[in-house]
Write a protein that binds this DNA or RNA. Structure first.
Lengths: 189, 189
DNA sequence: ATCGCTTTTTGCCAAATGGCAAATGATTTT
DNA sequence: AAAATCATTTGCCATTTGGCAAAAAGCGAT
């Protein structure tokens, strides 16, 4: 809970009463490895904040291959935005890559907070914009670099993640095959 | 102007007085091909809306190669968000790919609108979030597909753009060399 | 320790893409 | 029209990456 509050307060100020209200709506919950936080074909109904563990967003492309679109680390919000905001079916899965501990807000509670706390919507918008810009910044360089460079950049950007995720997820995130990634690792050692 | 207003009103409602205020702050301005809307090393000081023409965002990677990060079409907002919002130097160029006609707002005017019009910030946030999500959605598939597929998808997504931009810009956007793109085109005909 | 299962590594060869330079084509300037 | 400049295409060959299948390694249950 401490982690969540200090994360939020980076983006704006809140008084004690507002903080208490947010805390009251927050539920701590665990996800076991491989469990889904939200699923394709369903409407996302919760917003989360990762206290511990790694999650990922993935989907199936038109060849039926599973593609990891990105990883979400500790101390970050996790929500299937398009689905949650517009109450439409999602086309992606949000899944725990390791055992995870999260704080979650149900959609009704989240909306109540938005309606009750003056300035909360501004904070939320800042959080969301920053997260989206980060996604763009992380995904874009992958397009124009070769596979080895992508892997090296990944290790730099996610030093804490690299040893906790299966090779297959990382390969699809980097847009290469599992065997290529394995060979790249071999060459680098 | 009509285009801008109907674009804005997709994201929320405004009364006539508010619309007039926005219109009053808007300036129509043209950019010639290759001119910069904002530049790396400088602080972005304007927000724009493209009435006519195509712009692009590009930067130089550590090998000194120029990389096009994305294209912006007619009827879309154009702003170097990170730089504009935080008044920090940008690392990217925003450039007219063709001759362009834009509507622009200076930073002081934009901030006045935000301070004056109730609900304007909400509309702006919606516009920005949608644009950022679109960028993620457009960039992500590029990572996991082969070059020919990327080119074909580009043609589907930007049918109006494909014939108005130099091959070199498109190649760097797709993350392939100019010669590869030229060969791909040859194979497809 | 062994079995069964999943993940990762490796070998082999094919296909895709890059690097470089020259040729061709297109556009602008003189 | 010719020259100069810039953009695109092509040829040749090297390198990277993919596809497939088998081997090896890792891991949990017994």
């Amino acid at each position: 809970m401490k982690e969540l509050l200090s994360y939020i307060l980076q983006f704006g100020n809140l008084n004690q009463q507002q903080i208490d209200l947010i805390s009251k709506k927050a539920t701590e919950i665990t996800f076991s490895k491989d469990e889904y936080f939200s699923e394709a074909g369903k409407i996302a109904v919760q917003v989360g904040f990762i206290i511990e563990g790694i999650m990922r967003v993935c989907y199936y492309n038109n060849k039926g291959e599973e593609i990891t679109r990105y990883f979400i680390e500790e101390n970050n919000m996790v929500v299937d935005l398009e689905s949650f905001n517009n109450s439409i079916c999602s086309s992606a899965y949000v899944q725990a890559v390791t055992d995870c501990k999260l704080i979650v807000f149900s959609k009704p509670d989240w909306e109540e907070l938005l309606a009750t706390i003056v300035g909360w919507d501004t904070i939320v918008h800042k959080i969301i914009s920053r997260a989206l810009m980060q996604k763009v910044d992380r995904r874009s360089p992958l397009v124009s670099e070769d596979a080895t460079t992508r892997y090296l950049s990944f290790m730099e950007k996610y030093p804490k993640v690299i040893n906790r995720i299966p090779l297959s997820y990382l390969a699809s995130y980097l847009g290469i095959t599992q065997s290529s990634l394995s060979r790249i690792r071999k060459n680098i050692r």
